[in-house]
């Protein structure tokens, strides 16, 4: 082993040893750092052999965690979601009525899918509620990954334990498993496809499976996206929700 090789190994090792859990979370955040997002997406809810498709237009502002979703598939045409911070309102065009979703309801599957409102709303406060540790390294889908284990520090953490497979190079979380206190696996989310937008690797195709309902899964596909386009803050108001 020559000196050069040794140094390489050392530096690699140093790189590995130098990085810890919180650091990885921080690096992952880079991939979510944008001021605004405008996208069109579809959500395929697959129950047994039946596929239901929800299509939507999304606009969002990172500041204040604000977003507005408008459904465009025929059955839900005109239905809108407005998220402001931790609050969610749904507008139903047929009843011309706005319903506020809170408490338990936020944990329910959105539009009959395996994605809960809470999942959709979750802000990046993982480190507040979870202790993070690197618990291994694995090759996942051909990508060299850290295996990250998050354990709830407080009782009100949504999941007792979460395990993430985070690519070492680009800090993309390819897979996440959530567990209950009993040790039961509740949810599995997998990123199926990413797209590079500027400096950001954006997961454009994500699959989610509720492990308590094994016959169903949800695939969320972003069809077109643009980041950091200037957005009018007036988009995210109750008045706009009703319009």
């Amino acid at each position: 082993m020559n000196k050069k090789t040794f140094l390489l190994i050392l530096s690699a090792a140093a790189a590995v040893w130098a990085i810890d859990g919180p650091e990885i979370l921080r690096k992952m955040d880079v991939n979510r750092t944008w001021k605004s997002v405008v996208s069109t997406a579809k959500m395929e809810i697959i129950i047994d052999d039946e596929v239901r498709v929800k299509a939507m237009e999304i606009s969002g502002l990172s500041e204040g965690n604000r977003s507005l979703v408008r459904f465009t598939n025929p059955e839900d045409e005109g239905t809108k979601y407005l998220m402001l911070g931790d609050d969610l309102w749904i507008y139903f065009p047929e009843e011309n009525d706005v319903v506020k979703i809170s408490g338990h309801m936020l944990k329910e599957g959105m539009m009959g899918s395996d994605v809960s409102y809470e999942d959709a709303l979750e802000a990046d406060r993982l480190s507040e509620k979870y202790g993070v540790a690197i618990t291994g390294g694995e090759t996942y889908n051909g990508n060299d990954c850290h295996v990250l284990t998050l354990t709830a520090k407080v009782k009100d953490a949504p999941y007792y334990k979460r395990v993430m497979w985070v690519e070492k190079k680009r800090f993309i979380a390819w897979k996440e498993e959530s567990f209950a206190k009993s040790g039961k696996k509740l949810k599995v989310a997998k990123v199926l496809e990413v797209k590079e937008i500027g400096k950001i690797w954006y997961p454009v195709k994500v699959e989610m499976v509720n492990m308590l309902r094994k016959n169903s899964r949800t695939v969320f596909t972003t069809e077109s996206i643009s980041l950091d386009k200037p957005l009018d803050a007036g988009t995210f108001t109750m008045r706009n929700l009703r319009r």
Binding site: K155, D156, A157, P158, K181, K184, L186, L212
Partner: peptide
């Protein structure tokens, strides 16, 4: 049977 519910602290829990 597996019961799924939120705990008093709104954490997801499931158990047999």
């Amino acid at each position: 049977v597996t019961l799924y519910a939120l705990t008093r602290y709104d954490a997801h829990n499931a158990d047999d």
